[in-house]
């Protein structure tokens, strides 16, 4: 599903965020990406959705070599990956339904199909009642669940989450993690960047540990 082969990423200005990182993630796996802030977790995620490009090495995701694709094909790559952000990245000028529906509008789904899929996604994250609400009126946990619903509404085979529980208390964190586990159980490959080590150790999943841009 994901293959990093001797990947290095150097930002303009000289700082090497990743150096010679190699690993593979099988389809259907659930993997945690751990390490301190600045260890390169976010950079690694950015490489997977081509927000950044590797300076060296190969990044291959879903059989596509991301180093070789043109800018024109980047949107197609991103549509096959669901991404959950720490700061949710919700749009505050539209309600929950329209936020979740955004990837479907982009992919050009029919109106009826959009409604069906959005409601299915909202029911998975238990927010069916909040469909008409605006994000501003939701709690932090609810906002994060809207973000998750948006990430899975297009039924991607790969789900990335960058510090999805970063701003949540332990109970809400557990709820959110449970959601990811459920998606993984139906076959979705899940990669979660997190430094919530307590929570991770209880889940007993594979960890990819980063330290100052190197694999531990």
């Amino acid at each position: 599903m994901i293959l990093f082969d001797n990947v290095s990423k150097r930002y303009p200005g000289g700082k090497e965020a990743l150096s010679d990182v190699s690993f593979g993630i099988q389809a259907g796996e659930m993997v945690f990406l751990t390490g301190n802030s600045g260890a390169g977790k976010t950079t690694l995620m950015k490489l997977i959705i081509v927000l950044e490009r590797a300076t060296k090495g190969q990044v291959i995701v879903q059989d596509v070599n991301l180093n070789r694709i043109s800018a024109k094909h980047i949107p197609a790559i991103r549509r096959n990956v669901g991404v959950v952000f720490q700061n949710h990245q919700l749009l505050f000028d539209r309600n929950v339904f329209d936020n979740v529906a955004l990837p479907l509008y982009i992919a050009g789904f029919q109106h009826r199909e959009v409604g069906r899929r959005v409601r299915a996604a909202l029911s998975k994250v238990d927010l069916t009642q909040k469909e008409k609400a605006y994000p501003i009126s939701l709690s932090g946990g609810e906002q994060q669940r809207v973000g998750i619903a948006r990430a899975v509404v297009n039924r991607p085979s790969l789900l990335l989450a960058d510090e999805p529980t970063g701003n949540l208390d332990p109970e809400l964190s557990k709820e959110v993690m449970d959601l990811f586990i459920q998606f993984n159980q139906v076959g979705v490959t899940v990669v979660i960047a997190s430094h919530d080590l307590g929570l991770i150790s209880r889940l007993n999943k594979r960890q990819i540990k980063l330290h100052e841009g190197k694999l531990l």
Binding site: P75, R79, V83, L102
Partner: peptide, 16 residues
């Protein structure tokens, strides 16, 4: 701007 960024993150093409 924020909307544009999010749209691009979830796979919106430039023309979109």
């Amino acid at each position: 701007r924020n909307e544009i960024e999010v749209v691009k993150l979830v796979g919106g093409t430039n023309s979109f």
